[in-house]
Amino acid sequence: MKEIIAFIRMNKTGVTKKALVEVGVAGFTASKVLGRGKLVDSPETIAERKAKLMNMAVDDISEPVETEKLVTGFLDGSRLFPRRMFTILAQDDEVPKIVEAIMQANRTDNRVGDGKILVLPLLDAVRVRTGEFGETAL
């Protein structure tokens, strides 16, 4: 048994849920978390997104310098930003297809911030209703 932890964009929750159902595992636990990833070392990677976000900013209510600091902080990963954390319990042989489904559903063209997936070993599980242990409890 394995525990799959996926950190994904908030607005990808819906497609991820759909992708999971399609791959045959409907059960999951999700929660709202804050996180940050690797620091972006080359500014070119985020230049395009930054320009786009800066255009969306309303200049008359905030200082451009402040806005730029905020936008850059969000994009290069130096500050915490909200993400959805999915926890999925799965049988060993289901893991590759679940990982693949999550990756397909969450990939964007933004180059950074699509998230990470971790696969952890799970020793045992219990179904509360019946008290059964192990693989059948999932």
């Binding site: 964007t108 911030g113 997936i117 696969v119």
Partner: peptide, 13 residues
């Protein structure tokens, strides 16, 4: 501290 068996980056796979 617990073990992690695999890790994937979604954007690049």
């Amino acid at each position: 501290v617990g073990p992690v068996e695999e890790a994937y980056t979604i954007s690049s796979g």
